[in-house]
Design a binder for these strands. Structure first.
Lengths: 291, 291
DNA sequence: GCGATTGCCTGACTATGGTCAGATGAAATA
DNA sequence: TATTTCATCTGACCATAGTCAGGCAATCGC
């Protein structure tokens, strides 16, 4: 790629202008940008102050001033965290919620305008943004336990099913009930459900379902198209195997289909071995791993 | 598709952080960002001060201060424009050229690091950046005459040939000599060569080659993948037809291949009609238009 | 030639974001 | 229990980018 640098620079210029426009559009409500960035990160239920500071990379002194200025405006309230009384939790007031909603509307309008500018290529544009954000956020990819009934898990499972249907002959959406009425089996203490997050976007999942007292089944390993090629699937598998070990399990199983060749290659490379069939179609490959 | 607004926001966060890192990487050479932005816009041959100010959207007072500070550092010299002695022209000193080269190297290194982070998806990342930059720059797409021997035209022609080879059965790279020894025929007064620019990246081309005193042939219409879907091909055709009219030509011809269906649809929609063959394979469709 | 305009410069002023060194109280650790 | 570590707050300080008004010289339009 000869002129990659020139193209990167062009990207930077275009995006700097856009971010600049974003900044000025976030003004016009009589608040400096820094305070707004903090404000919109406060969830109505309350957000740990340290988390916001960390995400925005702010000095604790500066953060403290932003909080006080928002507090003076009556947009947020802060209280000490009862669990650790050194920490503080910021919570939106009704006035704050209204203000956040106003900024949200601005963002909504801007997004709509941008997508309109992309015309017929809007979906491609969003995919391109996902790829870039995921690459830039690569170091911050985080795997965390999630509730199998949460909308984020549901979204991942839907994407997983869509991919299976597209790639595996014989797989149909009706093989998978979503939301899964048996989701409880993916929840501790019986099972586990892990999500991979890039910033606030879920980009991958994996889960564990009990078979018997000593074994469980790995289910629903999925990685978003934008996040592939970065070893995330391997990290997810390592994480779920660690969970299984911590639960005291001695072996894991999984069923898959030979059309999913990268997945099978990953399993082989990490100690899984083909075993006897224990489920039916559309699975055509069964594997197990001793922990 | 999860909420497009949320994803756009995530993109903004990721990119803001990156641009922030860019800013601080432009520091570390003991100069504030504003001055650097001015410095790297000064061409060694000299640049009109007003042009820089305009491009960067700076107040004349601020601009003046940046110039003084760069001058004090010995990186640039300013002189009054002999043509209009109110205007000033900034010129890089040898020390300035060295400094600009150093900033260039920083950009180079940053680009390399970013591409390395993308790993196996580096090419996809650059394509995604191209798409985004092109969409954001959409309003600034400019069509300008270009020299058929310039590296930018050559790059476009190579991309054009690559696309033909990929799409047209029977087309092989050796059908096209690049650089074209007959490039003179694409140069005024005989012919024309137009490039479409998005910022400083050429994203499309079209050219005109003489047939006889009253007719010419439209050749090498090409639009970069990132810039498609925005009506650029139509704008290029309109521009080249306008050129032909201005040259006093009365008719245009072109040859193409039925595999290039969007192009043929465009020609039909803009008044071109199929005519008798006048060239050989791999062309299988010939069209003309009266001006 | 004359007034208006243009391009640039200068000095005074401001807002914003940011750093740094303690102070304070809470929690973890030995 | 004593010490260390941690999260936050506060006040002092700073650099950068930017605005604004006025001044000066060159140029333009009449």
């Amino acid at each position: 790629m000869l002129d990659a640098v020139a193209r990167l620079r062009r990207f930077n210029r275009a995006v700097t202008r856009e971010v600049g426009a974003l900044d000025t559009s976030f003004l016009g409500r009589g608040r400096p940008l820094g305070a707004v960035r903090v404000l919109v990160m406060v969830r109505p239920e309350g957000t740990d102050v340290a988390l916001i500071r960390d995400r925005l990379g702010l000095d604790s002194g500066l953060m403290s001033r932003f909080l006080r200025s928002l507090e003076r405006e009556g947009l947020i309230q802060t209280a000490t965290d009862p669990a650790d009384r050194r920490r503080r939790i910021a919570r939106l007031t009704p006035a704050g919620e209204a203000e956040v909603a106003a900024y949200d509307a601005i963002g909504q309008a801007r997004a709509a305008r941008l997508l309109a500018r992309a015309g017929s290529r809007a979906a491609e544009l969003v995919a391109a943004m996902d790829l870039i954000a995921t690459v830039l956020n690569r170091d911050q990819l985080e795997i965390r336990p999630a509730d199998p009934d949460s909308p984020e898990v549901l979204a991942c499972w839907q994407a997983y099913v869509a991919e299976l249907v597209a790639r595996v002959p014989g797989a149909t959406p009706d093989l998978f009930l979503l939301p899964d009425p048996g989701a409880d089996r993916y929840r501790p203490p019986q099972g586990r459900c892990l999500l991979a997050w890039s910033d606030d976007l879920p980009v991958g999942c994996v889960s564990l379902r009990p078979l018997d007292a000593a074994t469980a089944e790995v289910k629903r390993l999925w990685v978003d198209a934008a996040a592939r090629g970065q070893g995330l699937a391997r990290r997810l598998m390592t994480a779920i195997e660690d969970e299984a070990r911590a639960m005291g399990l001695v072996a894991l199983k999984l069923d898959t289909n030979s059309a999913l060749s990268e997945a099978i290659a990953l399993y082989r490379a990490t100690g899984w071995r083909v075993c006897a069939p224990y489920t039916g179609a559309p699975a055509d490959t069964w594997m197990e791993k001793l922990l």
